[in-house]
Write a protein that binds this DNA or RNA. Structure first.
Length: 570
RNA sequence: GGCCCCGUCGUCUAGCCUGGUCUAGGACACCUCCCUUUCACGGAGGCGACACGGGUUCAAAUCCCGUCGGGGUCACCA
């Protein structure tokens, strides 16, 4: 009796920067499918392109996966996860294996050496393009004699190895897309080993999937046509055929493919716009907010001269600030920084391309693992709708227990707003977080919207502008004749006499409510807004009693006095 | 351009396989009103799609053909 095949999925990113949302969704589905079948999920780093790989980048990927709650059974070791019997899990460390398989192919006549230079091929490719036909390798190397090949190899002539296609059409069976037949003439003798001795993606993937016993290849649709090549390679090597499931691409609202390059695209557009106004601005990187160059000069020059070069996260961020543009969130890490919850991101990503039916939209990873069906994965590309993501995030935040929100907000702050956390006593932070909970759409809102809490009392940042002073403090109320300023003055006196032990929302509420009833015809807004402006410099903050008590009594009174003086001066 | 895939509200989708229960359901966004100490939240209502054209059938969003539109891919990147 044949053994029941274990489900083995793999997520195989190339280590170029952080994990982006499309990759995250692939990983999530791989994880869910493996869990559903009690199988294994492998993470494999496809670092066969020496120019584009870095160790730091692969670690970034792993951190992103962990944060999303996606754990792997085999793969690089990271914080207690990883390892396994089929390693190493970096392709750059598996060259011996690839070479063995390559030799097998050459010996069997399924692969051959070719010596054209990239430049020569490029010329032929361009000619084909000019004639509006698809370029196919012309197999010139096949007419070389054994002696000629041996001589060239002996002379260390740069050589690639190409796969000799058998010349028949290939039918792909896809769990999502169904069957598709690729005609024979569409598949040419593709390179399987590069001149630098590294395998190409096609070759390494096929070899690793076999030796790692992968049963289900789940990846993005951009790989769909490649599948034919992989199948041919499997046949030539006598390998098993995994099941394939290609999922749709995730797009920007404009329909273009959502890509890591989008950040650089945004920056390049802004730089170009600036340069057309002042051409000399290209010479040096724009100065950041602190006056120093936003990007190092060498990086700047390289970035300008090559459109394929991407800026690292910090440089891109500083340049964006200098140019006053907002970078789109593309990578998982971007969404993390923006204060999205990992479980919400997973939920939303899964929903872009899969649905359990029955009008169910909100679910967790466990639910996904239980209900995912490959044939229910959407065939069409989805546009990534940030507004809906935000709405999901808002629901998740407002729906969680108060204590959980405070803890998560603090963790987010410790990660990304160390200054804020350090500037505030723990108790005050808890009070602020509690007061901000129900109006927070993201974890980030708490910090972005409450800078007044950590600003110095005399900071210009919390000084109201003239328009606000005029509207909130100086305009008189036709109903009572009072102004914001008069309320503020009266309130300052009242608050100054309250005992220190009453400096909490519960004690202050009746006092201020009573004042509003008496002096503002019960219109709390007439009283609350002037206080809010005095304390925060702006017209938006948590409920007024909380806003009052987050600061110590003395500092709150000082801010009120300060604004009274300011308004009187005007 | 060749090849492959896809095509339901602005967006994500349910329905399609196994035609009738679909005057096409849900969610987000948007609009209106209500609530309200700001901003939010919340409540009620509204707008809004089967790409088009032919078939097949008593009956088509569902099956067939064509057209148009979109995406992917054609690297010594993955």
């Amino acid at each position: 009796m044949p053994a029941v095949q274990t489900v083995v999925t793999r997520f195989a990113p190339s280590p170029s920067g952080h994990l982006h949302v499309g990759g995250a969704r692939s990983a999530l589905f791989c994880w869910a499918f493996a869990r559903q079948h009690g199988g294994r999920m492998i993470v494999r780093i496809e670092d066969t392109d020496q120019k584009r790989s870095s160790d730091a980048a692969s670690v970034g990927f792993l951190a992103d996966l962990k944060w999303l709650g996606i754990d792997w059974d085999e793969g690089p070791t990271y914080e207690g996860t990883g390892g396994g019997p089929h390693g190493p899990y970096f392709q750059s460390e598996r060259l011996d294996l690839y070479n063995r398989c390559l030799q097998q192919l050459i010996d069997a006549g399924h692969a051959y050496y070719a010596f054209e230079t990239p430049e020569e091929l490029d010329v032929k490719r361009k000619a084909a393009l000019a004639e509006k036909r698809a370029y196919r390798y012309d197999r010139a190397a096949l007419s070389l004699s054994a002696q000629e090949i041996a001589a060239k190899l002996a002379a260390n002539t740069p050589a690639v190895v190409r796969f000799k296609c058998p010349g028949h059409a290939v039918t792909i069976h896809d769990e999502v897309l169904g069957d598709a037949t690729i005609p024979a003439e569409e598949i040419d003798d593709f390179v399987i080993r590069k001149a630098d001795g590294f395998p190409t993606y096609h070759f390494a993937v096929v070899v690793d999937d076999e030796f790692m016993q992968v049963s289900h290849v789940m990846r993005a649709q951009e790989h769909f046509t490649n599948t034919a090549k992989h199948m041919l390679l499997q046949d030539a090597l006598g390998f098993r055929r995994p099941a394939y499931a290609h999922m749709s691409i995730i797009c920007n609202p404009d329909g273009s493919k959502m890509s890591k390059r989008d950040k650089d695209k945004t920056l390049r557009a802004a730089v170009k716009a600036k340069a057309s106004a002042q051409p000399q601005s290209l010479a040096a990187p724009p100065a950041g907010t602190d006056g120093s160059p936003s990007v190092a000069q060498v990086d700047w020059d390289r970035w300008l001269s090559d459109k394929n070069v991407q800026l690292d996260f910090d440089s891109a961020q500083r340049l964006a600030e200098a140019l006053c543009v907002i970078l789109p969130e593309i990578n998982v890490d971007d969404f993390r920084r923006s204060g999205y919850l990992p479980e919400v991101l997973c939920n939303f990503l899964a929903l872009n391309g899969w649905s359990p039916g029955n009008d169910i939209e909100k679910f967790d990873n466990q639910f996904l693992a239980k209900h995912l069906r490959l044939d229910r994965i959407q065939k069409t590309a989805a546009k990534f709708d940030r507004a809906k993501l935000l709405s999901f995030n808002t629901d998740a935040i407002t729906g969680m227990p108060r204590e959980a929100f405070i803890a998560r907000a603090r963790a987010h702050g410790e990660q990304f707003h160390g200054d804020f956390i350090r500037a505030l006593p723990a108790q005050a932070f808890d009070r602020l977080a509690a007061a901000s909970h129900e109006r927070s759409k993201t974890l980030e809102d708490l910090f972005a919207g409450n800078a007044w809490v950590v600003a110095a009392d005399d900071s210009p940042a919390i000084s109201p502008d003239a328009k606000t002073i005029d509207k909130v403090l100086l305009k008189s109320d036709p109903a009572t004749g009072g102004t914001g300023l008069s309320h503020l003055t009266a309130l300052h006196a009242i608050l100054a006499t309250t005992p220190d032990t009453s400096w909490n929302p519960e004690a202050l509420e009746p006092i201020i409510t009573a004042y509003a009833a008496e002096a503002a015809a019960g219109h709390m807004g007439k009283v609350a807004q002037p206080l809010r402006v005095a304390l925060t410099g702006g017209t938006v903050s948590p409920p007024i009693f909380d806003t009052l008590c987050i600061l110590p009594k003395a500092r709150a009174l000082a801010r009120i006095a300060q604004v009274i003086a300011l308004a009187k001066r005007d």
